[in-house]
Amino acid sequence: MFTGLIENIGKLVSMTPFNEVYKITIEAPSIASSLYLGQSVAVSGACVSVVAYDTSSFTADLMPETQKRTKFKYLRPGALLNLERALQVGNRLDGHIVSGHIDGIGKIAEIKNEGLTRQLCIETEESITETIVEKGSVALDGVSLTIIEVSRNWFSVGLIPTTMKDCTLGQARIGEIVNIETDILGKYVLKFMSFGREKKISDSPNGLTIDRLREMGWMQ
């Protein structure tokens, strides 16, 4: 589990296919020597496990699902990546609960500067936005951010100066692809509601469902 507060920025050294997985090597001298085999690291939001490391870099394996879901398939050597090691028990949860399991990708459609702050508008699929709410949380490239607005196929977030300085989003450009992980709580609620539409909530002979409760005015 992660918090969405970036520790360091690493640089992609290589990403090569090997026996149906991709081996990704990242230059990260500030944290590499403190890692251990099997340790979880969020790389631009995607949780990977360390399989090798030295004093200046580490290597992890990417499953085909990770390659398919994330922006990694578009990256080239030299790309900058946000890095966060897993949350330690007892630490403050200053961001929000981030699992490191990417839901999909989006494209930066607009960048708006407002004084020292900045807004990013992200175009994405409706399957992503349906679990996003205004003033809720989302992780973009592993960064915990607050939602400003949300529509069917886009949403916007705000960046403060510290965030822009400490992660790659401060250098983001229009058209850039970003990894997206929506709030885990929203996904569970959506799953429950979808289940309720198809199944009976109880064994009541009346066939009580979410839609029936809504018709009777008990839900909106």
Rank of each mutant, 00 (worst) to 15 (best):
S44G: 01
E198W: 12
N8T: 14
Q119D: 10
G4W: 06
S40M: 01
A79W: 01
I9E: 00
L116V: 12
G45P: 10
E125K: 15
L35N: 07
R197H: 14
G170Y: 01
L5Y: 04
F192V: 14
Y74H: 12
R92F: 02
V43P: 11
T25L: 01
S144H: 08
V48H: 08
A52E: 15
T168S: 11
F72W: 12
H101C: 09
L93R: 02
N153T: 15
V51D: 00
G38A: 03
E149K: 13
S137H: 15
G106A: 07
N19P: 01
I6C: 09
I177Y: 13
K23N: 03
W154L: 07
S14I: 04
D61G: 02
I24D: 00
Q39H: 06
S202T: 15
N82W: 06
S99M: 03
A60E: 08
V143C: 05
Q88E: 10
E27H: 08
V41I: 12
M216Q: 14
A28Q: 05
A46S: 12
K23H: 07
P64F: 10
I180G: 00
S14N: 13
T16S: 05
F58T: 07
L159K: 08
Y53W: 04
N206I: 13
F18Q: 09
N91V: 07
G100F: 06
L140C: 09
I31Q: 02
E130T: 15
S34P: 06
E65L: 11
K187P: 01
R173Q: 12
D94S: 11
T25W: 00
M216G: 06
V178C: 12
I160Y: 01
Y36C: 06
R118A: 12
A60Q: 03
G186R: 07
M193L: 15
R92D: 08
I9K: 14
D54G: 14
M193V: 15
D141I: 12
L75D: 13
A109N: 00
D54R: 06
L208H: 02
K135S: 13
V98Q: 02
D183P: 09
V89Y: 06
L93V: 11
I102Y: 03
N179E: 10
M164F: 05
Q119L: 15
M15P: 08
V133L: 08
V138S: 05
L83D: 06
G196M: 07
E27D: 05
R152K: 14
Y53Q: 09
I97W: 00
L93D: 09
G175C: 06
I26K: 00
K73V: 07
K73C: 13
T124K: 05
S99W: 03
G158D: 02
I147F: 07
E149W: 06
Q171Y: 06
L5Q: 03
D103P: 00
K107G: 03
R173A: 04
I184G: 02
V143Q: 06
D203K: 14
E215F: 07
T55W: 01
L169T: 11
F18M: 12
S194K: 14
E110H: 13
E130W: 11
N91R: 11
K107Q: 14
N153E: 12
L62T: 01
E27N: 11
L120I: 11
S14P: 03
L87S: 10
A46K: 01
D103R: 04
K165F: 11
